[in-house]
Simulated assay, not measured.
Amino acid sequence: MQINDDDDKVMLLSSPPWEILNLVSHYLDPNTLAIATCVSKTWSTCFSSDHLWDPLCTATFPTLATTLGSVAASLPRHRLYALGHTAALCRQWKPRKPRLSLDHLLFVIAVHLPGGSLNMIKPCIDMRRDPHGLFRFDVEVVEERELSLEELKEAKVTWTVAEKEWKAVFVLAEESVGKLASGVDGFFSKELPSPGCCSNTMSSGLVADIRFGLKDSQDSSRRSSGDRMSRIEKVSVGVMSVLNWRHVSVEDVLFYLEHFLQV
């Protein structure tokens, strides 16, 4: 029997018999099976069959196959495998590093007192880092001003973060009023706004934490008169989570600041 060129084209373009596709499918890996479903409607029907994908789901994602397999019995098994594969890739995804660098920031801290303000400007690159990578820092106060307990009780603190060369600024705490008792260092806290369009209605879950490190006066005449005089030796600043009231990591705060410093 003589076969002309037209017959050759028909043989080349026609799909293999169903039985051959079914036989070959058992030797293909999931990636090849998924590609094969895109060839034609016939191939899609053959290579997306549940009897092919069900053992693959059970072997690769047993928990997912057991849970969703019983709850969503009508869900095709190739779709179930795709969900498990996507979830596995998401778990392997490595989050990006913050675009904002701590070395490019500086802190501007103003302690407002009845007799005037104590102002400090400190580049973060010059500050000692927390060994555990937490966002908390100590800023030394150079000015030695002696203050009474009543003056310290009226103190208000403003903490501003500025980007290098004053490209952008963000106020973490503005004239925050703290708590101060005799024999206890000052404590100030201010809830931070939520980034994004819903900042007025949603909570960020973060709090600016500011503390005074006080040192008693060395003037013996002051101590003998019963008037306790102290000076602010340092101001400790940080950001805490309202969930566990612990300081959060430097990276988490840098991601947060990116929304306001427009990096």
Score class of each variant (00 low, 15 high):
134 L>C: 10
134 L>I: 01
137 F>G: 08
116 G>W: 04
133 G>S: 08
130 D>M: 01
143 E>P: 08
128 R>W: 04
122 K>N: 15
135 F>W: 08
142 V>S: 14
132 H>V: 07
115 G>W: 03
136 R>S: 11
129 R>A: 14
118 L>Y: 10
120 M>D: 15
144 E>Y: 06
115 G>H: 06
143 E>G: 13
130 D>S: 08
134 L>Q: 08
130 D>G: 05
126 D>M: 03
143 E>N: 12
120 M>K: 11
127 M>S: 10
143 E>W: 03
127 M>F: 07
116 G>C: 02
126 D>A: 04
121 I>M: 10
134 L>P: 06
143 E>C: 09
140 E>K: 06
131 P>N: 06
145 R>Y: 06
137 F>Q: 05
139 V>W: 06
115 G>P: 09
135 F>C: 02
132 H>W: 03
144 E>T: 02
141 V>F: 07
119 N>C: 07
137 F>S: 10
136 R>I: 04
138 D>C: 11
138 D>F: 04
126 D>R: 03
126 D>E: 12
137 F>T: 07
130 D>P: 06
122 K>I: 06
145 R>V: 00
135 F>L: 02
143 E>H: 08
117 S>M: 04
130 D>I: 00
128 R>Y: 08
136 R>M: 05
120 M>T: 11
138 D>E: 15
141 V>L: 05
119 N>V: 05
124 C>I: 00
143 E>T: 09
145 R>D: 11
145 R>W: 08
130 D>H: 05
123 P>R: 01
132 H>P: 03
138 D>S: 13
118 L>S: 12
119 N>E: 12
125 I>C: 12
133 G>N: 12
141 V>E: 14
128 R>V: 06
138 D>V: 07
129 R>E: 15
125 I>E: 13
140 E>F: 04
132 H>G: 07
126 D>Y: 03
127 M>K: 01
140 E>R: 10
119 N>T: 07
139 V>D: 15
117 S>A: 09
121 I>E: 15
136 R>F: 04
142 V>G: 12
115 G>V: 00
144 E>K: 12
128 R>C: 12
119 N>F: 03
116 G>L: 01
142 V>C: 08
129 R>P: 13
144 E>W: 07
120 M>E: 15
125 I>R: 07
141 V>P: 11
143 E>S: 09
140 E>P: 09
120 M>N: 14
127 M>I: 09
124 C>G: 12
120 M>G: 12
135 F>N: 12
125 I>Q: 12
136 R>D: 13
121 I>F: 09
118 L>A: 07
115 G>N: 11
117 S>T: 03
134 L>S: 03
138 D>R: 10
142 V>A: 14
142 V>I: 08
144 E>Q: 11
144 E>S: 13
114 P>Q: 13
122 K>H: 15
119 N>M: 05
128 R>E: 15
119 N>K: 04
134 L>D: 10
127 M>N: 09
140 E>H: 11
128 R>M: 10
134 L>V: 02
